[in-house]
Design a protein around this nucleic acid. Structure first.
Lengths: 354, 354
DNA sequence: GTGAAAGCGCTAACAA
DNA sequence: TTGTTAGCGCTTTCAC
């Protein structure tokens, strides 16, 4: 573990000054061909590896992008992270990552760790973009950032958006999805959601559900809010399906939830979509591996990551007109939602659930 | 975007020297209570955020762990990364991440980027641990690292392992899994694998399959090797199932593959497990959401990440007796493999496939 | 218990 | 075209 070579060592061996070494390594200005060759040769023979600490301390930027996400082992965030990482590599940037574990209270610490590294900017998802001490801090300090998945203000009027973000329009997307359920004959549609506190997206999707129901003159219900990582949702589902206003279709606020619900319905002896239709939201790849495949509203997750990098680099470069990007959502029809033609009588369903 | 406060600013405001500020911030040695309070107050009022570049340049370590994985949007690696990140946070370390995209040739570049950041050590998965220029480099330069998932030498004799790693014994685990299939009556078992070039794990699992077949006096077959991200495996599967030595059970080298295969069998009109049994390897969470749930050999994926951090920190601290950790694998019985009692006649199956 | 000063590796003025 | 030199922000001797 001998000491590692520095510009000084390279300069000495190549018979030039450290400044020249720096110039050659960074190809920052014209040097004589012969000199450059000598430097490269020396660098190679010494196994020279520029120390980014030194460089970054001196320069005003670090070519590092900080990424703060609720979880890394979640299909949506993992795919987004991969998109970010790929785009960062293409732009010669490195990625420092920190997860906040879906705990709003640890967002502060997570972001601080990244800022101490003097990242050039941040790509992040917060629990609630409308009320976030972290975002306020970033704004106050003028630190470039781009939100992913968070939508600062929901709605169709894009002029109400303020903070830079890349996401789908959650309200519209949810509305379109519920509209689809209505179009295929469902009238009793309930929403199953994760904890609202942890996700403004969930709340926006609920608003979309409500709007779609209202638009169609149907009655919307309070959502069934489930704890984040519920191992077993059978109890809650049973209650829901035995209630008087029994749903024929369930709109789950994300795919993970939808898949859990489908499994638990199956364990309760109910068939999807024969007894109940279920749709998700996200469009994670694994949804296509199920049989039947999950009907869901797709977000272009990897694109969100890639585009966030583009936007962030523009903001870092001084661009100021950062229009939030609303990416298109697309319905992916699988087999978990089917046309409702009243083929399952409530009494029949009730018997199954006994 | 005013200039950010430095130790100098804090020192000035607190009326002490920069050395004292450093001492207080790092609680590195005893300072008078009163002095410390003054420094904290000044730091707080200035919004002081220590610059890790400065600190790391001066110190010999950076408290940064480099992570290089084939992909980040893959359930296994994503969960491992989450485990790493959590453990790193607990130990006051930060994580820099880089994906090699399953391309052996880009491992060199990915690792170099991390090393330029002067990470204290690396946690990584390479395409082939037995033949890896990157690992050779790390060894030569004495840079601490811990492999995850890679197993340097397969087999039961733990004395043959050389490089520090955390993983399950792929050969043994695969053997146990195939043994299980044999125990429930299968004799015609084929293996479906991803590209061997990209994964030494796949090759080791194949060896386990072969051993189990040999041990039982059964005939093993060459594996069906599928390209990594095959959208559609129907063609290959059809050929396989129409062949003379038709398998009654398929051992897939990972869960992702297993789920794709199950879906495609379904599309071909075949039922799992009624017509063919299928098992996977990894134990990803989504496998439990399928109906029937995937029968698979579980790796303790998140633990692998956590333990890798522990080992790496020990190696960084100078520990030299780094016994590779072989973590236990456990069979998770789902519903995709069932006892084989010859209830499906080959001719019947053949008809289905027409 | 605290301060002064050197220096980590690098880049960017400024000279030559 | 190249060299000299002054720091970037921090920690760490070595004095006091």
């Amino acid at each position: 573990m001998g000491k590692v070579a520095t510009v000084k060592d390279v300069a000495l061996l190549a018979g030039v000054s450290v400044a020249t070494v720096s110039r050659v390594v960074n190809s920052t200005c014209v040097v004589r061909r012969q000199t450059a060759d000598a430097v490269f040769a020396a660098a190679k023979s010494l196994g020279f590896r520029p120390n980014l600490m030194g460089r970054n301390l001196r320069s005003t930027h670090t070519r590092t992008i900080g990424v703060m996400l609720p979880m890394l082992n979640h299909p949506v965030f993992a795919e987004c992270l991969q998109g970010i990482e790929t785009a960062a590599q293409e732009n010669n940037h490195v990625v420092a990552v920190s997860s906040s574990g879906y705990r709003p209270e640890s967002e502060e610490r997570s972001s601080e760790v990244l800022l101490q590294q003097r990242v050039d900017g941040l790509i992040l998802t917060v629990a609630d973009a409308a009320c976030s001490p972290v975002l306020d801090k970033l704004d106050a300090e003028g630190i470039p950032y781009v939100l992913v998945f968070n939508q600062v203000a929901a709605g169709t009027n894009s002029s109400t958006y303020t903070r830079p973000s890349v996401c789908v329009d959650n309200l519209l997307a949810a509305r379109d999805l519920v509209k689809y359920l209505i179009e295929i004959g469902h009238t009793d549609i309930h929403m199953v959601a994760g904890q609202f506190r942890q996700s403004d997206r969930s709340r926006q999707r609920f608003a979309g559900y409500r709007d779609a129901m209202n638009d169609a003159g149907l009655v919307w219900r309070a959502p069934l809010e489930l704890p984040f990582n519920t191992a077993d949702t059978r109890g809650e589902l049973k209650d829901l399906l035995q209630a008087k206003n029994r749903p024929t279709a369930l709109f789950c606020s994300n795919d993970q939830l939808a898949m859990t619900v489908i499994r638990d319905l199956y364990l309760l002896g109910l068939r999807v979509p024969e007894d109940v239709s279920v749709v998700g939201f996200d469009g994670v790849q694994v949804g296509q591996w199920m049989t039947p495949a999950l009907t869901t509203m797709m977000q272009p997750t990897a694109d969100i990551g890639r585009i966030a990098v583009d936007h962030l680099l523009q903001i870092i470069a001084g661009e100021r007109n950062t229009v939030p990007a609303l990416l298109p959502h697309t319905l992916r029809e699988g087999g978990t939602a089917q046309r409702y033609v009243s083929q399952v009588s409530p009494s029949n369903l009730k018997r199954k659930l006994q």
